[in-house]
């Protein structure tokens, strides 16, 4: 099997890299693909909590590269699907604990057994970012429609273009249709005009993500979740299917729904 290494990065922190990694990893696994997700944010481990697997971690990626455990001892199996495994970041070390050659070696090994190796990159453009970039076959850049996130995304795109040409695509996360309509947030098209790389997904702002993360259940597991649907669409596109981009519009409440919502909570 010749798997694919998919790196999720952004430049700026807090735009939803780990949430995206968790949802895409889970989504691909639920579609029957064998997936391993690796948290490369060493020292600031997060993906384990978003996936709800934090209690199962004994060994991590640093243990693997330092050979203080066997590879399969650090592979944490997901609770919901047997197609997904997680390799956690070390929490007590820092980015210098691994080199990009070690990560490359590890991903080469994993590509033999998995369809997708998903690398959750740390924010920034320093060492940790480079470790996540080097082995990538394909890079997904996550941004929000905010000016600083877009600027940082452009910098990342510039760095990737200057080094080796990787296949790149863009996810615009946390689009708030009410703000876009008011002209207080750049639209999907605005962002695309500034960053000219192909779009692979648009994800609407979803207040429920906070509670999904509290529970360790990514939104793709929730049937009625709008962001979950957006991630499902991205999964389809990653699998080569042509899915139309979601129209992100304000939720229209009917008269009755309005009345009901008055009494709710």
């Amino acid at each position: 099997m010749a798997g694919k290494v998919l790196t999720i990065t952004s430049g700026k922190g807090g735009v939803g890299k780990s949430t995206t990694s968790a949802n895409l990893a889970l989504g691909l696994a639920l579609k029957g693909k064998k997936v391993v997700a690796i948290d490369l944010d060493i020292g600031l481990r997060n993906l384990d909590m978003i996936l709800g697997l934090e209690n199962r971690i004994v060994y991590d990626v640093v243990n693997i590269v330092e050979k203080t455990c066997k590879l399969n001892q650090a592979l944490i199996k997901d609770k919901r699907t047997e197609n997904l495994y997680l390799i956690a970041a070390a929490q007590t070390r820092d980015k210098s604990a691994v080199t990009s050659n070690q990560i490359k070696e590890l991903t080469e090994e994993l590509k033999k057994d998995y369809d997708f190796v998903i690398l959750d990159s740390p924010a920034g453009i320093e060492g940790g970012f480079k470790n996540a970039m080097e082995p990538a076959d394909e890079v997904i850049i996550v941004t929000t429609p905010e000016i600083s996130a877009v600027r940082d995304a452009d910098r990342v795109i510039g760095i990737l273009e200057a080094n080796d040409k990787k296949e790149m695509s863009l996810i615009i996360n946390r689009i708030d249709p009410t703000l876009v309509k008011k002209g207080d947030m750049m639209s999907k098209d605005d962002v695309l005009q500034v960053l000219s790389i192909p779009l692979i997904g648009v994800v609407p702002e979803d207040k429920n993500i906070v509670s999904y993360t509290n529970l360790g259940e990514p939104s793709i597991l929730h049937k009625d979740s709008k962001s979950g649907q957006a991630y499902k669409n991205i999964v389809q596109r990653l699998l080569g299917k042509d899915v139309e981009f979601m129209e992100i519009t304000e939720e229209k409440k009917g008269f009755l729904k309005n009345i009901v919502s008055l009494f709710k909570d």
Binding site: P145, E146, I147, V150, R151, D154, V180, K182, G183, D184, M185, M186, S187, D190, Q193, V194
Partner: peptide, 11 residues
């Protein structure tokens, strides 16, 4: 709009 301003500044 502030969105247009953002776009212009980014450009």
């Amino acid at each position: 709009t502030s969105a247009q301003k953002a776009k212009e500044r980014l450009r």
